[in-house]
Design a protein around this nucleic acid. Structure first.
Length: 288
DNA sequence: ATCCTATCCTGGCTGC
DNA sequence: TGCAGCCAGGATAGGA
C-alpha cells in the first residue's frame, strides 16, 4: 500500500512533468474522487490553473496552484490503497480504473487511477484545515528521539495503533510499522507508556532508517497494485524482515514469523526478537 | 482516553 | 469452469 516512501517516490517522478504546466481541461469519471465539493466546482477551480510546485506531507500529495502569478489554492491527493498517478502522452491507455484526467498545456495528460476508489484528489483553498490533525514528519529535523519518547509517553496506547495514527507521526502505514517494530525489537502490543528512552531511541532510528531505505528503492510493490509513475515496481519489498513473511524464518534468528491481528490490521512479528514483555526471552526458555 | 466496528470499494484468492 | 464468500487495507465516524 502506498505509505510515505511510495508517495515520496510518486512526487519525485511526476514533479518534473507537472511543475510549470497549466491545466487546460479536466475530466472526472468518478465523482467521489474529487470530494464533496462536487465535479463542477472541482473543474472550475482546476481548469486554467498552473501547477507551481509538487510536494508531499504525510501520505498526501500537494500540487500548489496559481492563476495570473498569484496563489490559487491546492490540489490535494491521497492514494489510499490502490491510487496511482501518471503523466503521459494522450495516446497512453489509462485503463478502466482511471478516475480523474487533467489535460496539460504541453499536450500530456495527468491521470489519477484507482481500482478501489478510496483515493482522493480534491481542491483545497487552504491547507491548514487539511493538515490540522497531521503529526510530525518522521524524516524531518523536528522528529528527534527525545520528542518521540515524549509523544509515546503522553498516552497509554499499544505501539502499533499509535504508530498508525497519522496525528502523532505522519506517513507510516501497516508495512513500515511492522518493519520498524521488528528492527527496534519491540512488540506491537507493547504499551507506549512503558517504552523507555533507550527503546524509544531504537524505534526512532528504525523508523527513519526504514523509510529512508525504502525511498532509496522507490518504495515497495508487495502486491500488484503499487507501481511508480514510470510503471516500475519499487524494490524495497525484497528487504522486508517480517511483512508478508508469515511462517518464514526471521532474518535475524530463524524463528518463524508469526502473523496475527492488531486493530483489524495484519501484523507480523518474530516472537523471539520481539518478546511480548521487554526483557523476557521466550516463555519456553524461561521454563526450560 | 482508548478501543472496536462499520464504511468505503474491487480484484484476487479459496473452496466447493 | 463457475461462482459465492472472504480478504486486504487508509482514514474516519460513531458507539462502547
Amino acid at each position: 500500500m502506498p505509505e510515505l516512501p511510495e508517495v515520496e517516490t510518486v512526487v519525485r517522478l511526476i514533479e518534473p512533468r507537472l511543475a510549470g504546466r497549466t491545466v487546460v481541461g479536466a475530466r472526472v469519471r468518478w465523482a467521489r474522487t474529487v470530494g464533496k465539493a462536487g465535479v463542477a466546482e472541482f473543474e472550475r477551480r482546476i481548469v486554467g490553473a498552473r501547477v507551481t510546485r509538487v510536494w508531499r506531507r504525510a501520505k498526501y500529495l500537494v500540487f500548489d496552484l496559481s492563476r495570473g502569478g498569484r496563489p490559487a489554492g491546492h490540489l490535494v491527493g491521497h492514494l489510499r490503497m490502490t491510487g496511482r498517478m501518471h503523466v503521459e502522452d494522450p495516446a497512453w491507455d489509462a485503463g478502466v480504473h482511471v478516475r480523474v484526467s487533467l489535460s496539460l498545456d504541453d499536450g500530456r495528460v495527468f491521470h489519477f487511477i484507482d481500482v478501489r476508489k478510496f483515493g482522493r484528489l480534491e481542491f483545497a483553498c487552504d491547507l491548514e484545515d487539511v493538515f490540522a490533525a497531521i503529526g510530525v514528519e518522521p524524516l524531518s529535523a523536528e522528529f528527534t528521539a527525545e520528542r518521540f519518547h515524549a509523544l509515546l509517553g503522553a498516552r497509554r496506547r499499544r505501539l502499533k495503533p499509535l504508530l498508525l495514527d497519522q496525528s502523532i507521526v505522519a506517513g507510516l502505514g501497516n508495512i513500515y510499522v511492522d518493519e520498524a517494530l521488528h528492527q527496534a525489537k519491540l512488540h506491537p502490543l507493547a504499551s507506549s507508556l512503558r517504552v523507555d528512552p533507550a527503546a524509544a531511541r531504537r524505534l526512532h532510528g528504525a523508523i527513519r532508517r526504514t523509510l529512508a531505505a525504502a525511498i532509496e528503492r522507490e518504495g515497495s510493490s508487495f502486491d500488484t497494485f503499487y507501481r511508480t509513475p514510470e510503471g516500475n515496481p519499487g524494490s524495497y519489498q525484497a528487504r522486508f524482515r517480517v511483512y508478508g513473511r508469515e511462517g518464514k524464518p526471521c532474518r535475524s534468528c530463524k524463528t518463524p514469523i508469526v502473523k496475527f491481528t492488531v486493530g483489524q490490521r495484519g501484523t507480523h512479528v518474530c516472537p523471539t526478537c520481539q518478546p511480548r514483555r521487554p526483557g523476557s526471552r521466550s516463555r519456553k526458555l524461561r521454563l526450560g
